[in-house]
């Protein structure tokens, strides 16, 4: 093998193992952080003895599920961001800026209001989120596909407008709803990783890994798509089919995240942006690296959200929103020429 390619392989393996360790470290820190004030040194002992102690159930039944959920959703959101950025060839695109999160939240609100979860069970949340997300993604795509040159700016504007429309509709639904539904919606919209339903946590974990797995079948297609649709076609990519499948994967990941954790902004923007600086634009490494980095980032943000005004806790979306909003403006000002 040529030394350059071997060098690339080594680099990729290093990056992936580095990020994996980062996820582990953040996970351990998150496990040690919390209102119960469990000392780090005692944790191994608590875990070893297992069973019935109160500390054990705090660790395993409250903190661990929350950490796993944070990782799954962080991974899912930044993977969705990476997929969308690759397909739209625009680094400012992500589930939130394209209005996909907004669409998903509208879907989930409809579900709460019409009590669809009572009919088809808890799975109604991700299903309605997915439906709302796919609707928006196809809307944004079909509204912007005509003119190749204005596309990127117009697309972002369309996305922002759709976000506004979706959040207005959510407010409309809230105004029309009964008090107990209203409380449900408000709690969910605040966006937090404090999800009591283990079934939803399992769905989120398995779903996001499946999303990553499917995306990998298209990593070379995504590399070709960064050259544009026509170039990709000339390289043998069935662009229409690839895009359709990846749009579905991105809406699935977004719908899943929004339905479980509410709207968490900008994870899909910040994480892929920095990961791309580290890995370069090759999706063979970018997909997995973004997933891992997203998992670490959201878990870390959640730790900050939990400790910053302890004993109260902030919605994690506030933390990612502040970091991400600033990042967005920074990236925009840096790219003003080439956008």
């Amino acid at each position: 093998m040529s030394p350059n390619i071997q060098h690339r392989m080594t680099r990729w393996i290093l990056i992936l193992s580095g990020l994996f360790c980062l996820v582990l470290v953040v996970g351990i820190i998150a496990l040690c952080t919390g209102a119960a004030g469990i000392d780090i040194n005692t944790i191994p002992a608590i875990l070893m003895t297992g069973g019935s102690s109160a500390e054990y159930s705090i660790l395993m039944e409250i903190r661990l599920p929350r950490i796993l959920l944070g990782m799954a959703i962080g991974g899912a959101l930044s993977l969705a961001g990476t997929l969308l950025q690759g397909m739209f060839r625009n680094p400012l695109v992500e589930p939130y800026t394209l209005g996909i999160s907004g669409g998903a939240s509208l879907g989930v609100c409809i579900n709460i209001l019409f009590k669809c979860y009572a009919v088809i069970g808890i799975i109604a949340y991700p299903l309605f989120g997915f439906a709302g997300a796919s609707l928006v993604i196809f809307l944004v795509y079909s509204l912007n596909r005509s003119n190749t040159h204005v596309k990127s700016n117009r697309m972002l504007l369309t996305g922002v407008m759709i976000s506004y429309v979706a959040s207005s509709l959510v407010m409309l639904l809230m105004a029309l709803s009964h008090t107990d539904d209203l409380q449900n919606i408000v709690l969910w919209i605040m966006g937090s990783l404090d999800e009591p339903n283990t079934q939803l946590i399992q769905v989120a974990c398995i779903g996001s890994v499946i999303g990553l797995f499917i995306s990998y079948f298209f990593c070379m297609d995504l590399n070709a798509l960064t050259l544009g649709d026509e170039e990709a076609t000339s390289l043998g990519v069935n662009t229409a089919r690839t895009k359709k499948i990846l749009f579905i994967v991105a809406s699935f990941l977004t719908g899943l995240s929004v339905s479980v954790a509410g709207i968490i902004m900008f994870v899909g923007l910040i994480v892929p942006h920095f990961v791309r600086m580290l890995t370069g634009p090759d999706h063979r490494i970018l997909l997995a690296a973004s997933f891992l980095a997203g998992a670490a980032f959201l878990t870390a943000s959640d730790v900050i959200a939990r400790v910053i005004i302890a004993p109260l806790e902030l919605p994690v979306g506030v933390i990612t929103g502040i970091i991400g909003g600033i990042m967005f403006i920074w990236a925009l000002s840096r790219r003003q020429v080439s956008l």
Binding site: E231, G280, D282
Partner: peptide, 26 residues
Amino acid sequence: SSRDLAMHISAVMQAIDPTAMKVRDY
């Protein structure tokens, strides 16, 4: 299929958008 066609015909289009990618990878 587009893949089979790509084994027969390759193309150099008018203007190439500069993509952030190494020449070798391109």
